[in-house]
Design a protein around this nucleic acid. Structure first.
Length: 817
RNA sequence: GCGAUCGUGGUGGAACGGUAGACACGCUACCUUGAGGGGGUAGUGCCUUACGGGUGUGAGAGUUCAAAUCUCUCCGAUCGCACCA
């Protein structure tokens, strides 16, 4: 029979559906594996990145099912979000209709690729049932003080007309539409993720064995913990009177207390309270005020170009020296890090140095290199060294003096040791329609009030008009009017919706719950205890600091709310590389996409999966190559065709190894090598390309012999190994010849690796020269003797000073002369 | 600037300190079919006149009996962060 991918694949996809083949068992006494790929946004169609992502997780899921694990391999859709609304604006579609149509289409694509997802646990985060529990969690978090509402300077995308979290601002632009963001002062809801900053950093250690180092580093940098000294700088008398005695001092933070004696000026952010006061009370000239305004309005990118400063004409006292230093505004001082004010040490900080040079400010050196000299007029010396001009700390090593200086400040109660983080609280409200409503009510009498849990979900109204201007919920005639859950009086609903990253922060927990009880509870503690953590989480590295940080945060919050008992959600993370074509990421705008549907139609899903897993290890980028796809197709065809060499059996054939020919023995050895490699790949290395190469080698070896039992045994094992990769054709072969009995753990037979003789390399001085054939039980002396004979032409007339034998591998003779 | 990852044939990539280039793509020759395509056999790092020999994993040094692999310096690429005090 000719290989017909369409027919075979359709057949098995129906079989799996009808037999509920991939539903997890509720028998919690079995060993489990939770295999998860990051769920997709329902953008419309699958792309090759999706195919790669789910081919990897599906291989894991199918492998562990064969190994008799209870496997949870669910799929869902991250279905709230702006593209649905943007499509609505563009095409006049309804976000809900657009979203669910896309989900239906993409689900079909998934199943036409043969992915072994649990169909019963499919979900979309825009389902009201999902919103219901999410809103419940939000209320719990508010009660715990982990959600709060506050006015603040926010990242605003003028194009998407919404606020963005810091994590969603890339190079000063919106992560979605690339529009430069502006700062906007408005009310916003925040998750108190900073409360967990220390734990989020510390627990990265627990992930060291299972997560890529790069992701751990990115999270570590993002949280950005730094230790240092915080202290107040007090104004001198003249400055106090300029400021009408409204401010006595301001607070600064430094990670370099060892440079404290070198402070020669201080700088405030243009947004600092003191600056605002001076502007409001006309303590600065109109010209200066307008310069400050320009500084504040500059985009982040402009602000980085050139250092700008303004002397405020006020001075503070140096904390340790009997002198005063000027207070400036500097555009490089950030209001949202530390206290928005810095002490400046131009001799030992590059920024301070550039600034001091530009405005001709004092440069006071206080640290010398341990060796050599530094020209302090040319550049800042930012390394550690030895202190001078530093009072009682002279001669001390910088590292040591940091500790001592902090101690001095603390003993004299003029400052204290502090930790600062780059991580900010997570702003979660979005001024958009297609998201989960934030379940709060504004009441004139009671203020900000939570909805009652029994009223959940607060669902979105469907009769809305989407124009692209403002938030449609705001303009809906009735939706936002409600009665206050506390006093029953007239009240108004919050019209902000949640950041879609809230949904993806707990979906992996929802999947743990048996769908038959989804109506009643989000999940049970018992279910989470059994299924979590996720054994293999597969997804793109682009979520290294967004989703993966938020999901870790939610897990810790849920733990503290008593919903679960673990600290980290994802035991092992596999970040797959991008799919490229012509050296660039596949994208519609570049016109270099390959449509998965077209590949499935032409070659079949098995070919697509085989190519994608064979062309590169999963973590590396993968270059699309049409002729290599063709090659994958040919392999499958051969694999299918050559199954005609085997005979049907319900059990693996018994073969008397000793009576086989050399070729037959070799074929068996390659088959079992492939099996060993497969186990290694799934458990340790995840390099599916090498596993597939092993199977190809075994096929090549089988092909040069004609023993039916060896062929049959070979196919019993190879089709088992390949089922996770090419499940349709593997199932077809297995059903026809083995009654599907070979999809089970396979024993490695040691005797196939036992040989009478073994080829060993002979190297002289580490350089490979020749080979010898030795008996496996040969002793060291006879091996060396044989090696000397074989290598005679390289050792003649020379003295052998060392002989090394690596059993079954090589002999190295070290000669002199 | 800081950090992470990585540099191996024409290409994708193997080699978990022990015979570098497995497996595949491409290419060449031949056979089969004989439009194309498909199938098969052999070859394919580079240099060298074959046998043989030499050389070779970005460059250089080191550790080791033995280095693509470990260490250091430099060069280059990719990604991430970036005026974070």
């Amino acid at each position: 029979m000719e290989y017909n991918s369409q027919q075979i694949e359709k057949k098995w996809q129906n079989f799996w559906k009808e037999n509920r083949s991939f539903e997890p068992s509720e028998d919690f006494s079995k060993e489990k594996k939770y295999i998860l790929s990051m769920f997709p946004f329902p953008s419309g169609r699958l792309h090759m990145g999706h195919v790669r992502n789910y081919s990897i997780s599906d291989a894991f899921a199918r492998y562990y099912r064969q190994q008799n694990f209870n496997v949870l391999h669910p799929i869902g859709f991250d279905s709230f979000g702006m593209p649905a609304e943007n499509a609505a604006i563009k095409n006049g579609s309804h976000p809900k209709g657009w979203t669910y149509d896309n989900i239906d289409y993409m689900k079909n694509e998934f199943y036409s690729l043969g992915f072994s997802f649990s169909r019963e646990r499919e979900l979309a985060t825009s389902d009201e049932l999902y919103t219901k529990f999410e809103q419940g969690f939000i209320i719990d978090m508010f009660n715990k003080g982990l959600l709060y509402r506050e006015k603040g300077l926010l990242n605003w995308c003028p194009n998407d007309q919404t606020v963005l979290a810091n994590e969603q601002v890339v190079d000063g632009c919106c992560w979605r539409c690339d529009t430069p963001i502006v700062k906007k002062d408005m009310n916003q809801y925040y998750f108190k993720i900073t409360k967990y900053a220390d734990e989020l950093i510390d627990d990265l250690k627990k992930l060291e064995d299972g997560w890529p180092k790069q992701v751990l580093t990115m999270q570590d940098n993002w949280i950005g913990k730094s230790n240092g000294l915080e202290f107040d700088l007090f104004f001198d008398d003249n400055s106090l009177s300029i400021l009408d005695n409204k401010f006595k001092s301001f607070d600064v933070f430094t990670t370099r207390p060892d440079t404290i004696y070198g402070v020669s000026y201080t700088a405030l952010a243009p947004e600092h309270d003191i600056v605002t006061y001076m502007i409001e009370n006309k303590l600065l000239s109109d010209e200066v005020i307008s310069r400050i305004k320009v500084m504040k309005n500059a985009s982040n990118i402009d602000r980085q170009k050139e250092k700008e400063g303004i002397d405020l004409g006020i001075r503070v006292k140096h904390p340790l020296l009997n002198k005063t230093v000027p207070v400036w505004i500097a555009n490089f001082v950030l209001m949202d890090y530390g206290s928005g004010a810095v002490m400046a040490v131009p001799a030992h900080d590059e920024r301070d140095f550039d600034f001091a040079k530009k405005y001709d400010l004092e440069i006071n050196a206080v640290i010398n290199p341990k060796e050599g000299e530094h020209d302090f007029t040319a550049s800042a010396y930012t390394e550690r060294g030895v202190l001078f001009n530093s009072g009682e700390f002279d001669g001390m090593d910088s590292k040591k003096s940091q500790y001592n200086i902090i101690k001095y400040f603390e003993d004299n109660k003029i400052g204290k040791k502090t930790t600062n983080y780059k991580l900010k609280d997570w702003g979660v409200s979005r001024q958009r329609y297609w998201g989960a409503p934030i379940p709060f009510v504004h009441c004139d009498k009671c203020g900000l009030v939570m909805e009652k849990k029994e009223n959940l979900p607060i669902a979105l109204p469907e009769d809305i008009e989407i124009t692209g201007e403002g938030n449609p919920l705001e303009k809906h005639p009735t939706w936002k009017h409600c009665s206050c859950p506390e006093c029953g009086g007239d009240a108004v609903r919050e019209t902000d919706t949640m950041d879609t990253f809230v949904e993806s922060s707990w979906y992996f927990l929802r999947f743990c719950a048996d769908a038959s009880n989804w109506e009643n509870e989000a999940f049970s503690k018992e279910q989470l205890k059994y299924w979590m953590g996720v054994d293999h989480y597969v997804g793109g590295i682009e979520h290294a600091v967004l989703h993966l940080l938020y999901a870790r945060f939610f897990t810790k919050v849920f733990r503290d709310l008593g919903y679960l008992d673990f600290d980290e959600p994802f035991d092992r993370l596999l970040t797959q590389g991008m799919v490229l074509k012509d050296g660039a990421k596949m994208s519609k705008s570049k016109g270099n996409t390959v449509d998965p549907d077209a590949i499935i139609e032409k070659y079949g899903a098995d070919t697509a999966r085989l190519f994608i897993l064979f062309a590169a290890p999963p973590t590396q980028e993968l270059e699309w190559n049409d002729s290599a796809v063709e090659g994958a197709y040919k392999f499958i065809k051969r694999f299918y065709d050559r199954s005609s060499n085997i005979t049907a059996t319900d059990a693996i054939p018994n073969i008397e190894h000793g009576s086989l020919s050399k070729e037959e023995k070799f074929a068996r050895k390659k088959v079992y090598e492939a099996l060993a490699r497969s186990n290694d790949v799934f458990n340790e290395r995840y390099t599916f390309n090498t596993m597939i190469a092993g199977v190809m080698e075994a096929m090549n070896a089988l092909n040069v012999q004609s023993n039916t039992d060896v062929w049959t045994e070979g196919y019993w094992i190879l089709s088992s190994i390949m089922e996770p990769v090419i499940p349709h054709v593997a199932s077809e072969i297995s059903e026809k010849y083995f009654n599907l009995n070979n999809f089970a753990p396979q024993n490695i037979i040691d005797e196939v690796f036992v040989e009478d003789s073994v080829t060993m390399a002979v190297s002289i001085n580490g350089k490979a020269r020749t080979e010898i054939e030795v008996a496996v039980d040969a002793d060291k002396d006879s091996i060396i003797a044989q090696a000397k004979e074989a290598g005679a032409k390289w050792i003649d007339g020379k003295e052998i000073i060392k002989e090394i034998v690596v059993p079954k591998k090589l002999v190295n003779l070290v000669v002199k002369g």
